[in-house]
Design a protein around this nucleic acid. Structure first.
Lengths: 195, 195
DNA sequence: GCCTCTTCTTGACAGTTGTCAAGGAAAGTT
DNA sequence: AACTTTCCTTGACAACTGTCAAGAAGAGGC
């Protein structure tokens, strides 16, 4: 019973993510979201109290899957350079394949600066992303036999900034920007280890 | 004549920035913007063609002033450490004093991922911010007598990412986050120079 | 005073939004 | 088969949006 309800919620979340990724948080109306789903617009209020609740549920639903994106890279790499290359490739790949989801994430994170109701959920998810990145950096340090030179928050802030710039460049200049990102990662990751 | 018109445009921009910084791009209506100005809501279309034109004009108006924010730091510092401390302090200060303007900037930059009409203006302004940051890093390198270890775009992406995280932390946990930012800058800036 | 051009206000327009209530359809239970 | 509960659609609501046209208010020249 709760199972079936959650199934529907997930289904709605999946449709919502499509629309949200295409239009952004502000311009994605419930009617548009429902239009990209097998249901009508009224059903949203049967499964969610708010537009906000739907949005938060949806982004949680997405991020829950994507925080494991680099775990394979971490597990499979046996040398620092191999990890670095695999990580850089994966970063570029996800911009290429999931740009709408990433811009949605940055959209919501920025909206959380204006709407408190979003803040807690966003802060929590951002923390899981930081942990995800730190697993990569930490493994990279282990493989290199050198300790990290920066704390978790710094590693995440730096790499997230580069990722965001790459996303912007990808939107502006197309796929060529992705090569730039890989090069940047090759420059930056070694700086995150003590010499 | 063109002078008086531009005067009014600036006046409207100033009011618009107040409202935009408070509500964000999506929820700041022209009526609300005009309500925080000495004029009525119709006047916007006398001086601007669009809401978009007003918003772009406004953010340009603001950023034109604020890209010189660190020029004093660059000009007055005589040692690497002095520059570093002054830069870190200035970063924290502007989050404390101008948080609404910064969240507006990130809001617009993210919206440019969804609305092409915004993209060119945003890309151009982002370039001036990159140049602003590079003037700091370049001067830091000169004072230290060591060359930078990363290109412009990397320096900007990294520092912008840290700044954004600090802005988020400031919104979530208050002014305490600003000390963290200063500490992070002390950690990161030296990494941007070749050993 | 009269006329003209600029500046600004008012009021309306068509469209969209989140929300919700009323009731139909479907599924499950007895 | 009758009844109950769950699920979903439809249609309406009040509020809000960007835009624009009509005309008032003001400034300046004659």
């Amino acid at each position: 019973m709760a199972n079936k309800t959650d199934r529907r919620r997930d289904e709605l979340a999946e449709s919502a993510l499509l629309t949200l990724g295409e239009m952004g948080y502000a311009r994605a109306s419930l009617r548009e979201i429902a239009g990209n789903s097998p249901f009508s617009h009224g059903v949203v209020h049967y499964y969610f109290q708010d537009k906000l609740e739907l949005v938060i549920y949806s982004v949680r639903y997405y991020k829950a899957r994507c925080v494991t994106r680099y775990d394979g890279v971490v597990a499979d790499s046996t040398t620092p350079d191999e990890l670095l290359e695999a990580f850089a490739a994966k970063l570029a790949e996800t911009i290429r394949d999931e740009a709408p989801m990433h811009r949605l994430w940055y959209d919501l994170r920025t909206q959380s600066l204006f709407e408190q109701p979003l803040r807690d959920a966003i802060t929590e998810i951002d923390g899981t992303l930081e942990a995800m990145i730190w697993r990569v950096v930490d493994r990279y340090a282990t493989l290199a036999g050198r300790p990290p030179s920066v704390p978790r928050a710094v590693a995440y802030g730096m790499l997230d900034g580069l990722f965001q710039q790459a996303l912007l460049a990808h939107a502006a200049h197309g796929a060529a920007a992705l090569d730039g990102l890989a090069a940047q990662i090759r420059t930056v990751l070694p700086l995150l280890l003590r010499p």
